[in-house]
């Protein structure tokens, strides 16, 4: 059964459809939340809030985007609200150099452990776009819907986030060599 059909049934108070929707979307949403906020307790609380909001707001889903995009938008907003309440704990801001230093991507750096470490050092809003594009495979229009910003902003954010990630990966690789 499609997610659109499930959300229609959820809007009528169908709990089995809600369970199916949760089963279909919760792993992706939870993974996204966990990678955004960085700790399991908060991710679980936010996931609970997200799906209670889905239950409550299902009747207002108009189908302007996919159900997955709509749920991710709720999740993103809740995560951002939570992050805003936290003190900034991630020191960041490496100096960026030229835009297209392709060779600096360093193919050997692409392993999962290093990637995870580098992603953790990205600011949340940069991490969000990388996760949405490469982790969740959303289109630029869907990312724009989730983030609530224009497509142009999405593209520039992704571009900037990639440059930042590239530098972080290089730093991680340098530390590994020591």
């Amino acid at each position: 059964m499609s997610e659109e059909h499930l959300i229609c049934r959820v809007a009528t108070g169908d709990r089995s459809a809600f369970a199916d929707l949760y089963a279909a979307l919760s792993p992706a949403v939870y993974t996204y939340l966990l990678r955004l906020v960085g700790n399991t307790g908060t991710a679980e609380d936010l996931l609970q809030e997200v799906f209670l909001a889905v239950w409550q707001e299902a009747a207002r889903f108009r189908g302007a985007s996919s159900v997955k995009t709509w749920v991710f938008r709720i999740a993103h907003n809740k995560a951002v609200s939570w992050l805003r309440q936290q003190r900034p704990t991630v020191p960041l801001s490496p100096t960026l150099s030229s835009e297209h230093d392709v060779e600096e991507w360093g193919m050997s750096a692409w392993n999962i452990a290093r990637l995870g470490e580098a992603l953790e050092h990205l600011p949340p809003h940069q991490r969000a776009v990388i996760e949405l594009v490469f982790g969740q495979e959303l289109s630029y229009a869907e990312v724009a819907t989730v983030l609530g910003c224009p497509v142009g902003t999405v593209k520039s954010r992704v571009s900037y986030a990639l440059r930042l990630l590239r530098h972080l990966l290089r730093d991680v690789a340098t530390e590994d060599q020591r």
Binding site: S26, P27, A28, Y30, T31, L34, A43, E44, L47, V102, W105, M107, W110, N111, I112, L115, G116, I130, E131, F134, G135, E137, L162, L165
Partner: peptide
């Protein structure tokens, strides 16, 4: 390089709540 990033991102195990 982006393909590598994509593969690496997708290779990360998803978390189940």
């Amino acid at each position: 390089a982006l393909r590598h990033l994509h593969r690496a991102m997708r290779a990360r195990p998803p978390h189940r709540p």
